[in-house]
């Protein structure tokens, strides 16, 4: 049965990883502006053509 304990620890670790990722993304301001990043990625970089 100890294998279940190991599994439990692994699953909790994964869950904590995602919780930390969520908190980081909020802190980073990723949900502050839902317009600019979505459009920014559509601009191509080589815009300096004359």
């Amino acid at each position: 049965m100890s294998v279940i304990i190991i599994l439990l620890c692994v699953s909790l670790a994964v869950a904590i990883f995602f919780l930390v990722a969520f908190i980081w993304s909020v802190k980073d301001g990723q949900y502050d502006d839902d317009y600019s990043p979505a459009h920014r990625m559509l601009f191509d970089d080589k815009t300096s053509k004359e």
Binding site: D32, D33, D34, Y35, S36, H39, R40, L42, F43, S48
Partner: peptide, 27 residues
């Protein structure tokens, strides 16, 4: 609009002293 976004974030091409511009559209 997204044109505003693009132009403002390319401000460094109008003024070489500008290093980076970032638009917050919501605000």
């Amino acid at each position: 609009c997204s044109s505003c976004l693009w132009l403002l974030e390319n401000l460094h091409r109008l003024d070489a002293g500008v290093q980076q511009t970032e638009v917050n559209f919501a605000e």
